[in-house]
Design a protein around this nucleic acid. Structure first.
Lengths: 162, 162
DNA sequence: ATATCACGGATATTAGATATCCGGATTATC
DNA sequence: GATAATCCGGATATCTAATATCCGTGATAT
């Protein structure tokens, strides 16, 4: 079981644009520079975040991406699902209905108990991801990152924002 | 994010061998018949369950697989991890340390907050899967499956166990 | 008018999951 | 003891999804 690497990129990008001065946007290329990831591929993931209305995209010079809503209203789960999709990790193929002892379809009114357990675990996973917003992550950075990190980040904004 | 289909097969097989009469074993081929899945590939997953000491393997005629421990002592998580591995779904590549604003390695003593959140969600997922044992699943089948299903299963045992 | 940027489609590459086969080792049964 | 059934691990083939790039189009600030 493996999450797309794009999930990590998307979350870090969301945190970074949450720190932007009001009404400014960061182009995809700058976000790729900042994180040291392939620009063309990151662009694809940012487009997914834009379609999910997590980011706003601004075309043209001084354009780029910014948050579409307050950082408090964007959960980690929102970003994960925008990039990785909402398909469950466990997909019940109903193998209980295969093989020599299978019954008629109408007999299977009760759900597959294995399916139920796996689904409830994924619910717990999602619930946990919903508990944290991008604003929380920004706060965590402020509270626990080396201060030099923030300072350097601010310098960098001055440099790259035209 | 996607779990191997083998996880579903492994769980259904664990439930089935938990229903075996004492000291009997089911060959991989019969388990594949019962579930309508490719025998050669299911065999690979059963070998993984055997290595994880969830199943006992018995070579030779009248051999096959049986539970290595009481069904109450085998959790759903045990089976999932035996087949899917224990690698986390989210793998932090520390992209916060890349790019133009990176600091010296020694500055990063606090953990990446995104990593922490993703890891806690996976902990919640695992905790949920640990709450249910194979014995619980067997009980659920007994309590909620169509009775005809169990009856047919028992007939089938008589037929295939030499 | 021009340069900057997002967007979506097409396509190539790679890694991992799915699937099969075979030779060797083990053991119950005759 | 011979035979047949079974597990085991390695080698290999195939298929799917993730990763990655490129380009033409449209929008817009300067």
């Amino acid at each position: 079981m493996r999450l797309s690497e794009g999930v990590e990129w998307g979350l870090h990008c969301a945190v970074l644009v949450a720190l932007l001065p009001p009404d400014r946007a960061l182009p995809a290329g700058r976000l790729a520079d900042y994180h040291g990831v392939p620009p063309a591929y990151l662009a694809k993931h940012l487009q997914a975040l834009s379609r999910a209305q997590i980011l706003d995209s601004v075309p043209g010079p001084r354009g780029g991406y910014r948050l579409a809503r307050p950082a408090t209203d964007v959960t980690v789960l929102d970003v994960v699902e925008a990039i990785d999709g909402t398909e469950p990790a466990f997909r019940c193929t109903e193998i209980r209905r295969q093989g020599p002892t299978r019954l008629a379809t109408r007999e299977y009114r009760v759900p597959c108990s294995i399916h139920v357990v796996m689904a409830s675990a994924e619910d717990a996973w999602r619930a946990e991801l919903r508990r944290t917003s991008i604003a929380d992550l920004v706060g965590m950075v402020g509270a626990s990152a080396p201060p030099a990190s923030l300072a350097k980040g601010l310098d960098w904004f001055q440099e790259v924002l035209p």
